[in-house]
Amino acid sequence: MSDLFNKVKKNLIWKSVFRRDYRDNVRDRALAVFGNVFLHLHPVKVRESAVKLRYTWGMGGITFLAFIILTITGVVLMFYYHPSVDQAYSDMKDLEFQVPYGVITRNLHRWGAHFMVIVVMIHMFRVFMTGSYKAPRQFNWGIGVILLVLTFLLSFTGYLLPWDQLGFWAITVGTNMGAATPLLGYQGPFSEYLHITPYNDIRFALLGGATVGGNALLRSYIWHCIAIPLIATVLMVVHFWRVRKDGGISRPQNH
């Protein structure tokens, strides 16, 4: 058996992938982290509190995991979906009856989305309760608030895509709020002084029309699948980077 191990490990291909052996010593434990592009998100050593479940609840990491699950299931769903009024709904039916594992892929995407909204709110609650927004982490809290809003918007833009009654009317109710924006919405206070109508107000810009239709579906699709994930990814990079640069997971400072 160990002969076989040696054969597998002592050849050019293995060595080209894994550049060194792992022995359980200080040097190799450190190398395991900063020699790995994914793990080097972490420092080589962390405070115990970062490992204790009772302190962070792991909520930030779980939110990130949910984002990854949603990205993967979302890409799979994109292969079977056309963002057009004629096809969107029948694509959903195809997912249900034709596509192998279509039902569970869609289920994972939907429940994962609800789950992400829940855990990101609990993450914010935890960060508040441990006072982790205090110096020097003020800026990162602000980034986090924007990421929370983007999570809502990601879910909101995804709501319309099945093109069923639920999504259609949820988006109609939601975007009607835009029409009430002061100055910029046609029903909002003071908008008449700017000659705002249903055809040039902020709601029109959101929907690409005066009602929820094909343009709104396409806009939702692009915001949902490309624009917001890109923006959120950039902000997540900043968020994680700042966690490191601001001194890691927060901890009592008075010692």
Binding site: R29, S49, P252
Partner: peptide, 13 residues
């Protein structure tokens, strides 16, 4: 001391 005040560093890996 409050919880975590006397924490030491541990390995990430």
């Amino acid at each position: 001391a409050v919880d975590g005040e006397n924490d030491q560093d541990v390995d990430t890996y």
